[in-house]
Simulated assay, not measured.
Amino acid sequence: MHLKFRLFESPTAFRLLLLALLMAMIGFIAWLMMIWMPGTSYAGELPVLNPLQAELRNGLRRNVEMLATTIGPRNVQHPENMQKASQFLFKELEDMGYVVERQAYKALDQTFENLIVEVPGKSRPKDVIVVGAHYDSAYKSPAANDNGSGVAATLELARSYMGRKPSRTVRFAFFANEEPPFNWTKDMGSLVYAKSLKAREENIVGMFSLETIGYYSDQPNTQRYPQPLDKLYPTTGNFVAFVSNIASRELLRGSIRSFRHHAQFPSEGAALPNSLPGVGWSDHWSFWQVGYPGVMITDTATFRYPYYHTEQDTPDKLDYDRLTLVVSGVEKMLGDLVGAPV
Rank of each mutant, 00 (worst) to 15 (best):
L60N: 09
N63F: 08
R57T: 00
T236N: 03
T111I: 14
Y305L: 00
R171P: 10
A24T: 15
L157S: 04
Q312T: 09
A20T: 09
P51W: 07
V327T: 09
G237W: 01
R168I: 04
R257M: 07
T154V: 15
P47A: 00
K317C: 08
R6N: 14
H2G: 07
V128E: 10
L17D: 02
V295K: 09
W281L: 06
R102L: 04
G269Y: 03
L19W: 14
L16G: 10
W285R: 08
A143D: 05
P79Y: 05
F88D: 03
E55V: 02
H134F: 12
Q264T: 09
M296W: 06
E92D: 04
A158Q: 06
A263K: 10
G329N: 07
G72T: 06
A153H: 04
M33R: 15
P277H: 11
E201N: 14
G237S: 11
E178A: 02
P180N: 08
P79W: 06
K91Y: 12
T154A: 14
V240F: 05
A271V: 07
N245P: 02
A24Y: 13
L7S: 10
A24I: 14
A54M: 13
E201S: 13
K195T: 12
P306I: 00
R124D: 12
F208S: 05
M66N: 06
D316T: 03
F174M: 11
F242T: 03
R322S: 09
Y225L: 02
K126N: 14
G163W: 03
Y161I: 05
Y216C: 00
G280S: 15
Y308S: 04
V130S: 05
P125L: 07
E211N: 10
L232K: 08
T324V: 08
I116C: 02
H261T: 10
I71F: 01
